[in-house]
Nucleic acid binder design. Sequence first.
DNA 1: TTTACATATCGGGAAAAGTCGATATATTTG
DNA 2: CAAATATATCGACTTTTCCCGATATGTAAA
Lengths: 82, 82
Amino acid sequence: MLEWLKEPELNFPDQITAGFEHGVCVGQIQAKAGLTQSTVSEYLSILQRAGFIESTRVGQWTYYKRNESAFEALSKLIESNL
Amino acid sequence: MLEWLKEPELNFPDQITAGFEHGVCVGQIQAKAGLTQSTVSEYLSILQRAGFIESTRVGQWTYYKRNESAFEALSKLIESNL
DNA sequence: TTTACATATCGGGAAAAGTCGATATATTTG
DNA sequence: CAAATATATCGACTTTTCCCGATATGTAAA
């Protein structure tokens, strides 16, 4: 999922909202993942709590997009601390 | 454990072998970890299979030391691919 | 070559993570 | 407000991971 969210336009061409500035909505990710709605929703909320993605609620949809700084931070942490 | 192995001299002052060029032996790590011998042994072998540490058998002892290049590779992987 | 010591492997029980269906909540539409 | 849609949460079950004791293997010392 995290890799998919790197290029939303490519990986979620079916999303019909105006642009991807807020990322991709849960339903799209669910369809592509082939897991149930509840599983995907929980998974996304875990990723969010961990700081790897951010969510934006727009109407009835929740959009998720990557938080690149978290990945950079993790990369640096592994490089230096670990 | 991986952090401990960054500075063997500091973290394993009890090791009485001549130097740390091959790393630290299982018993030392076990004592510090507070886990059983079998658990630590298995854990170290997993880390080795994953490439994060290397082992050297010297007599009845097995020494483990970090493989820094694996950490760099992981760091770069997270930075670029993920 | 028997005994002692260090480490590795094996089998199993406990804990955690993954996944689901059912249901709750929130939002939009009629 | 009622129905429809999207997402979130809950409880239960399954799978995986963690960790242990027992035992095997490999090496050194007596």
